[in-house]
Amino acid sequence: MNSLRLGSYTFTSRLILGTGKFSSVSAMIEAVRASKAQLVTVALRRFNREQAEDDLFGPLSEIEGLTLMPNTSGAATAKEAVKAAHISRELSGSPFIKVEIHPNPHHLMPDPIETYEACKILAAEDFIVMPYIPADPVLAKRLEEVGCSSVMPLGSAIGSGQGLSTAEMVKIIIRESNIPVIVDAGLRSPSEACAAMEMGCEAVLVNSAVAVARDPAAMASAFAKAVEAGFDARNAGLMPRSGSAVASSPLTSFLGAAR
């Protein structure tokens, strides 16, 4: 019960780390190690012989117990995303695919229609499909029905650091879903990741908040602790809210004075 199940895979870590925007490959690798993440995202890009050091496959494959989840970033249509998924599976040997289709570079909001079409195809091809979606409970349910292994609603716009601005919608998605709900995008601080886990998310995906921190490895470690704390707190059972004070110390028999 303490492991995260995605398709036929199980993970003890509930923090999924993105590998973009780090100042160097070594900073990224240190952060991945510090995060104890077992699932990390990568993006497919054209090989450039002048920048061969940009290739992350080698460095990431040296970390034991790590599974790659390629994303389809760059795809603007379902067709492009499916093509990227096929190439990524060939390269990674991993069945995981983060379906990410955002045609507008200004807001990077996922296209729900193309995302749905791509997921339908990829789920039928036995990928472990992890779609990045707007926080829409109806879409989330439809994606569950076509065989996605999770849904990943955005907390706020990619890289914005605006936190869990979609919290109320994410709560509805969690209530209605039979597959893991993972908040992906927009988180800025470990407390927000903790809140997402307390709310009932099965994992969180973080990239920018770690990558652009002054000390990415320390921030990765902080996120890992927050995710674990939030998960433990949810399982421990949060106390109910009350509209008024409820005393935690006895209010009678104070120093023998009768009142």
Binding site: M28, N71, N207
Partner: peptide
């Protein structure tokens, strides 16, 4: 022909 690799991405 396309030659592709994995780069950093979220």
């Amino acid at each position: 022909v396309e030659i592709l690799v994995f780069a950093g991405g979220g």
